[in-house]
């Protein structure tokens, strides 16, 4: 589903990604672990199409399409979703209006009919209940005044509504207590299936106890330096990233 080959990228002239090779087949969940500054967030932004990153080499295909040639909204329409590490606050943009506009944009691109306000509310309320989100979060500005946990839950709500084929979770576990972590993990696990893939980026192994990955990749210094099964996350937790470097 997602195939990254020799991807290199620079930020302000500094090379951050130094040749990434990674393939996530349909239906699989892969974890990317790595220390701070290894290029985890850069990878997620490059895949989602944020400006300010210069691609200096390599290719990314998504469902066989050239992902890097697409605008961010085209990538989203094609089924790529990024759950932000730091969800952005949008004062004055109501959360319900935002969610409905996004959902209808995606539906339109798939040739599905748009949802009116009532139809949307029905769908959104059901999803929010599953994520233990209070309903008044629909009325507030997007992420405005949300706690860290609420912002992350709002990301998972967006994912559940937009129903992407590929979700990149960028440190979605950071700042979450154990209850919120379980809720978020349940939200991701509920989407698992043959048509859903995910790239779970995390610093810690903790999240992977709840979202058990098919594969774990270690990203260091802008390269994937090791790949293994779920047991690799536990090894890293026990011995730290230093052991990988030594190897």
């Amino acid at each position: 589903m997602l195939k990254i080959e020799g991807l290199r990228a620079e930020v302000e002239g500094k090379e951050i990604l130094k040749g990434i090779d990674l393939e996530v087949p349909a239906g699989e969940i892969h974890a990317i672990m790595g220390p701070n500054g290894s290029g985890k967030s850069t990878l997620s932004y490059v895949l989602a199409g944020r400006e300010g990153y210069e691609i200096t080499g390599g290719a990314v295909s998504f469902h066989g399409q050239d992902l890097l040639a697409m605008e961010p909204e085209e990538r989203a329409a094609a089924g790529l979703f990024l759950a932000f590490q730091y969800p952005v606050e949008l004062p004055g943009v109501g959360n319900a209006n935002f969610l409905r506009t996004a959902l209808n944009a995606i539906r339109r691109s798939k040739g599905e009919p748009e949802l009116d306000a009532m139809q949307f509310l029905k769908v959104a309320r059901a999803r929010m209940k599953a994520l233990s989100m209070p309903e008044d979060m629909l009325k507030r500005g997007v992420n405005v005044g949300f706690s860290g946990g609420e912002k992350k839950r709002n990301e998972v709500l967006q994912m559940a509504l937009l129903n992407p084929g590929m979700a990149i979770l960028d440190e979605t576990d950071s700042g979450l207590d154990i209850d919120a972590l379980k809720i978020v993990a349940d939200g991701v696990n509920a989407m698992r299936g043959p048509a859903f893939s995910s790239l779970v980026i995390t610093h810690y192994q903790r999240l992977l106890d709840y979202i058990v990955p098919d594969k774990v990749h270690v990203l260091m210094g802008g390269r994937i330096v090791q790949t293994g099964g779920p047991e690799l996350a536990h090894q890293l937790e026990a011995s730290g990233y230093g052991s990988v470097q030594a190897a």
Binding site: R50, G52, E73, V88, L90, A105, I106
Partner: peptide, 29 residues
């Protein structure tokens, strides 16, 4: 704000619509 614009576009909202939403939000405040 570039990060706000990107956030909206990353959710599938076309750039023109995203810009309009942010301008409207700025004014409606």
């Amino acid at each position: 704000d570039e990060s706000q614009l990107f956030y909206l576009r990353a959710r599938g909202i076309p750039e023109g619509v995203a810009r309009s939403m942010l301008i409207e939000a700025f004014l409606l405040e």
